[in-house]
């Protein structure tokens, strides 16, 4: 099931869709390995940044990820543990 909206500016797509994410656990760390979005499976090649984002009265754990063809921001809602894709852009941008 997907929710959200899509807005494209300068090649960056702002979206807020619910997605499915497969994660791995490394010690105490959680690492997104792949995610399904737009009917496609995207392999995460590397996690470039981890951060926290407060938005809409909620706190999200954010992961900037590089799939080799796309850069995306994956957000885990810390309250209900739902994953969303924040924004994404082709990796050349």
């Amino acid at each position: 099931m997907t929710f959200g909206f899509t807005l494209v500016t300068n090649g960056v797509m702002e979206t807020n869709e619910e997605i499915g994410v497969e994660v791995g656990f490394w010690g105490r760390k959680v690492i997104p390995l792949r995610f399904i979005w737009g009917g496609r499976r995207h392999e995460v090649k590397r996690v470039t940044l981890k951060f926290e984002r407060k938005d809409g009265g909620k706190v999200f754990l954010g992961f900037s990820v590089d799939t080799g063809t796309m850069l995306a921001e994956l957000l885990l809602d810390k309250e209900d543990l739902v994953w969303r894709i924040g924004h994404c852009a082709p990796s050349y941008t």
């Binding site: 470039t48 900037s64 852009a89 050349y92």
Partner: peptide, 9 residues
């Protein structure tokens, strides 16, 4: 640099 960290390109 935080933006460059997030976006390696």
């Amino acid at each position: 640099t935080v933006e460059q960290q997030a976006n390696p390109y």
